[in-house]
């Protein structure tokens, strides 16, 4: 494998909502150039963990290191400033805008007070081409006319355009058909190969094994397993997810 440089390191992360401890001392690492799958059953704490990384919801305690430096992720803005981008399940694209407009939304390039459309169009095309996206005909298509897979592609490409160092994908293939899932997973792979650290949340273990280098399993707020996908199998992961197996049991 390529580098083992950790982009994000979490140590002893906790988070509770009132009396409910959702995260009970999580250690987690995601490396540059690798896809780390975060799996676990509903209520295991995946979303809470991700929200903390996205800066949407601060952790109660624990250390967050980004690129080796200790940081505080107090807002979505501070997370974005570090180069953390989240691609949410519901995508957060504007259907009435075209691909270029969506990719640059909130960070438009300007000449004076007017939008620099040609430059944005060029950059968007370049980014999509760089990710070997071939399913999109025109970057000036409205997002409303795109398929679910194409939309996911646009959302991922947007994070690349923003020079993300860590991209978090929340169920990127949940609503997609077979062919589109394949395309998005290929895109995720290329994204990681370009040196970005990718965290992917998924319930679909088939997808996880297809794309992930590392698999981290959460069970009731604890990290019960950190596995290399090449050294484990489907059944083991299911047992970790359902709590019928712990790291000590390893045969």
């Amino acid at each position: 494998m390529t580098s083992q440089r950790p982009i994000v390191e979490l140590v002893g992360i906790t988070k509770s909502f009132g009396p409910v401890d959702v995260l009970k001392g999580i250690d987690f690492t995601a490396y540059a150039g690798r896809v780390t799958a975060l799996v676990g059953d509903n209520g295991a704490g995946k979303s809470t963990l991700i929200k903390g990384l996205a800066g949407v919801q601060e952790y109660d305690s624990g250390v967050v290191k980004f690129d080796g430096e200790e940081v505080r992720l107090s807002s979505a803005r501070s997370a974005a400033a570090l180069g953390i981008e989240v691609v949410y399940q519901d995508l957060a694209l504007c259907e009435n805008l075209d691909i270029v407009q969506n990719m640059f939304l909130g960070r438009e390039s300007m000449t004076g007070i007017t939008l620099n459309e040609p430059q944005m169009e060029f950059e968007a095309s370049k980014t999509l081409t760089g990710l070997s996206v071939r399913t999109v005909k025109s970057v000036r298509q409205k997002v409303a006319s795109l398929s679910g897979g194409q939309r996911q592609t646009v959302a991922i490409a947007r994070s690349v355009l923003r020079n993300a160092k860590l991209v978090i994908l929340d169920e990127p293939t949940a609503a997609l058909g077979v062919a589109q899932t394949e395309q998005v997973l290929n895109l995720v792979r290329r994204l990681a190969d370009s040196g970005v650290a990718v965290i992917i949340i998924s319930h679909n273990l088939q997808d996880v094994f297809k794309v992930a280098d590392d698999i981290a399993v959460l069970y009731l707020g604890k990290m019960v397993a950190n596995l290399k996908s090449t050294e484990t199998n489907h059944l083991d992961v299911v047992q970790y997810i359902t709590g019928t197996r712990t790291m000590g049991d390893q045969a």
Partner: peptide
Amino acid sequence: LLLDRTRFGRHLYAVGGNPEAARRSGI
């Protein structure tokens, strides 16, 4: 010109299309 060629115009359309997406984009 305001609607088509300025940042404000772009953001107005974005808010109209998907306010949540606009917010997440920092608008």
